Structures are given as C-alpha cells and as structure tokens.
Amino acid sequence: MSMLSRRDWGARPPKDAYTTLNRTKGVKIHYTGDHVDPALAREHAKCVATVKAIQDHHMDGNGWIDIGYSLVVCPHRTIFQGRGAGHLPAANGAGLNSDHYAILGLVGTSGLTQPPDDLLLGILDAIDYLREHGGAGKEIKGHRDGYSTDCPGEALYTWITSGTPRPTSDDSR
C-alpha cells in the first residue's frame, strides 16, 4: 500500500480542529462528480494537483475546515491522506458523517469514468487501512446510499453493489 501523508502531497492545514471519530459502520465511496482528465491515469503529478484543487474547493468554496474526505485514492494505487482515520469526514452529507468514513476515488462523470484496476485496489487498501487504524466497520456503501446524489457514479456503484471484488489483475495476492 502506498500512502501519501498530508505533508507529502502539500495539503493546507485544517482551519480548525477535527471532530474525533473512533468507530463507524464502515465506509462510503465517492467520485468527483465532474470531469476528470484521462491523463491523470498516466501522470501521477496530475493526481496531486487534483487533490489540492478538491481541498481548495472544499475549504474556500464550501467553507469546510478541510478536504471533506477521509482518504483519496488515485489510479496509481496511491492513497492520499485527507482528514484521515479517527476524524469525522464532511463529504457524506449532513447528519451522515459519523456513520461512515468517506473515500474518494479519482474518477468522474466525464473523461476518466471507468476506474482502473489500481484505483479499485487502492480503494480496497484504503478500506483495510480505515478498518485497522480507524475502527471502520464492515459496510461498504456508495455516497448515494442514504443521500440523494448520483455519487459515486455508475461504474463505482456497480462495483460496490457486486461486493467490491478484487480486480483479476491484482498481482499482490
């Protein structure tokens, strides 16, 4: 598993202290909800820029204290620490954040819409990490489960509802 700390990806510091979260029912999977440049799958530097832009939008546009996600996963099987384990996310919806951690997969509504195998493997790594370090329970749901949205998109949602199977290209088994 490859995880970038907030320092490694150049995250801004949060505007305020996080609310502690010791245990959840599980995780909710998200997507960007807009265009994701397909070049992101080839150029990891674009992943870093995308995560920074999402953090800026959440802090400056939404007025949140930080990026809303617990972890962000890119197509290179790299996990970016967002709010991290043990901290309340902001991305699941009002009144829904204490039940599940929030994991963002860097795919969107156009451009890169189909999650590459390494992104799916990275999400599975992120789930394992949140279970081990944050008390995440067994549930794996899409953002739309409990909140009126198309998130996490059809491709990720189909993967979730089919039981989040490990991609067959996984050579780390």
Rank of each mutant, 00 (worst) to 15 (best):
S70F: 00
L104M: 10
V48D: 05
C74L: 09
A136V: 10
S2H: 15
T158V: 12
I79K: 03
R166Q: 12
N97S: 10
R173H: 14
H58F: 09
E139I: 07
P89L: 07
H100Y: 08
D60H: 11
P116C: 06
L112N: 01
D118M: 14
A17R: 14
A94R: 15
S162E: 14
S98T: 13
L104K: 03
G135R: 02
Y18D: 09
Y18E: 06
G63A: 11
A41K: 03
S2K: 15
A53V: 09
G26P: 02
Y129R: 04
Q114E: 15
S172H: 12
D150N: 13
L120S: 02
S148F: 09
A39V: 11
D8Q: 12
Y69E: 13
P13S: 07
N97Y: 06
K25Q: 10
R131S: 05
P115E: 08
L119C: 01
A45V: 08
A94C: 15
N22Q: 14
D37N: 13
A17L: 11
G93N: 11
F80M: 08
G142S: 06
Y31G: 11
L106Q: 04
D16M: 12
G26D: 01
W64S: 09
M59P: 03
Q81T: 09
Y147S: 11
S169N: 08
T19G: 09
F80R: 03
T161V: 08
Y101G: 00
A102H: 03
Q81A: 08
H57P: 15
E154P: 04
Y129E: 01
K15D: 14
N22S: 14
P115R: 04
G108S: 07
S5L: 12
D60S: 13
P116D: 05
C47V: 09
L88Q: 06
A126V: 01
L130T: 00
H76M: 11
A17D: 14
G108Y: 00
Y147V: 06
H87Q: 13
S70K: 00
D145W: 07
D150K: 12
C47K: 05
R12W: 10
Y147K: 08
D128Y: 08
A41S: 10
H100S: 04
D60K: 13
S169W: 12
Y18H: 12
D56H: 15
P14R: 05
P116G: 02
L106D: 02
L88H: 07
I103F: 01
H133N: 08
G146F: 02
A102E: 02
T50M: 14
R7P: 11
W64M: 11
D66G: 04
K46E: 07
D8M: 11
Y31A: 15
L124D: 03
K141T: 01
H100F: 04
L119H: 00
R23V: 15
D128C: 09
N22P: 05
D8P: 03
G142A: 07
Q55C: 07
G63K: 08
